[in-house]
C-alpha cells in the first residue's frame, strides 16, 4: 500500500493580526507550524500502514524552508518526505497548488492520498478534491473515521452537516480528514534523530514534467485584489446614562423589536 500525505507549513494563525493603519499583516514572531489538520492526516496514514502494511510519504509544495515541516513528519515515523520546490510554483492559488501536487503524486505513485480537511491560513478545503479531480480518482472529504481498508476498497465515515454518511470507495482514493479522526502521535526520539539526518527528495517543475502554464501565477485563475482589516459597522451607540437608565433603554428597545 503506497500512501501519500500532503502537508503544508503555515503561520500559526492564532498569532496573526492586521495593522489597521497600513493594512498589512503583522506577523512579527509568528511561528511556522505544520497545518494542524495535516498532522491528523499523517497519523491516519501511519495507522493504515500499521494495519495494512505499506509505505508512507509526506509531500509538500513550498520554499526550501518547508523542509522543516517535512522533517517533523519524519520524526513521527513516515518513511520518506518529498519537497516540490521551484520558483515557477510561486504565487500558486488552490488550482495551481492542486495541479502541482497532482504532478508530484503522479511521479511517486499512490494507492491512498490523505490531506487535512483544510489549511488554517486559507481555510479553503479545495486542494484535496482538486487533486483527486486531476487524477480522475474518487475522493471523500471530511472523513472522521476509517472503518476498513482492503486491497482495492475502503470504507469510511464522512462527516456531514447533519450527521455522517458511511461511504465506500474503490482504490486509489483521496481522503481529507477532520480532527475527530484521531489524536496525532508526538514524535519519538529515534524519529527526531532520524529526521535530522533524513534525506529530503526535492523535485522541480522539470522533474515533474509539469506544464508551465498550469504552474504558479500563470496557472492560478484567482488573484488577491487586496487585504484589509474586517470593517466595523458605523451605527454604534454606546449608552452613556446611569446604569439604571441604560438598562431601561436597552430593555425598551427589546420591547420595541417585539423580543419581549
Amino acid at each position: 500500500m503506497k500512501i501519500v500525505v500532503c502537508v503544508k507549513q503555515v503561520p500559526d494563525t492564532a498569532e496573526v493580526r492586521i495593522n489597521p493603519e497600513t493594512n498589512t499583516l503583522v506577523r512579527d514572531g509568528v511561528p511556522s507550524i505544520i497545518n494542524p489538520y495535516d498532522l491528523h492526516a499523517v497519523e491516519a496514514a501511519l495507522q493504515i500502514r500499521e494495519a495494512a502494511g505499506g509505505e508512507v510519504t509526506t509531500l509538500t509544495m513550498g520554499p526550501p524552508q518547508a523542509e522543516n515541516a517535512l522533517r517533523e513528519t519524519v520524526s513521527m515515523g513516515v518513511d520518506r518526505a518529498v519537497l516540490l520546490t521551484d520558483r515557477l510554483f510561486a504565487g500558486s492559488d488552490t488550482w495551481a497548488t492542486a495541479y502541482t501536487l497532482y504532478k508530484g503524486i503522479e511521479h511517486l505513485g499512490a494507492d491512498i492520498i490523505l490531506c487535512g480537511k483544510q489549511a488554517i491560513d486559507g481555510d479553503t478545503a479545495q486542494v484535496g478534491p482538486e487533486i483527486a479531480e486531476f487524477f480522475g480518482m474518487p475522493h471523500i472529504a471530511y472523513v472522521r473515521k476509517i472503518v476498513e481498508v482492503g486491497n482495492d476498497r475502503i470504507v469510511v465515515q464522512r462527516l456531514m452537516d447533519d450527521g455522517f454518511d458511511v461511504v465506500e470507495s474503490s482504490l486509489p482514493v483521496l481522503l481529507t480528514v477532520v480532527r475527530e479522526i484521531n489524536v496525532p502521535r508526538l514524535p519519538s526520539l529515534k524519529g527526531k534523530m532520524a529526521a535530522k539526518k533524513a534525506g529530503i527528495l526535492k523535485l522541480s517543475a522539470a522533474d515533474l514534467k509539469a506544464e508551465e502554464e498550469n504552474l504558479g501565477l500563470k496557472g492560478s485563475p484567482t488573484q488577491v485584489k487586496n487585504i484589509f482589516a474586517p470593517e466595523a459597522k458605523a451605527n454604534r451607540k454606546v449608552l452613556s446614562g446611569s446604569m439604571e437608565d441604560n438598562v431601561a433603554q436597552l430593555v425598551n428597545e427589546l420591547v420595541e423589536m417585539k423580543c419581549i
Binding site: 502521535r185 519519538s188 526520539l189 529515534k190 524519529g191
Partner: peptide
C-alpha cells in the same frame, strides 16, 4: 504509553539492547 512511544524509556539503556 506516550512516554514509551517517544522512546524516553530507552534513554539510558545501551543501544545494543534497543535503547538510545
Amino acid at each position: 504509553k506516550t512516554l514509551a512511544q517517544s522512546d524516553l524509556f530507552g534513554l539510558f539503556i545501551p543501544e545494543e539492547y534497543g535503547g538510545l
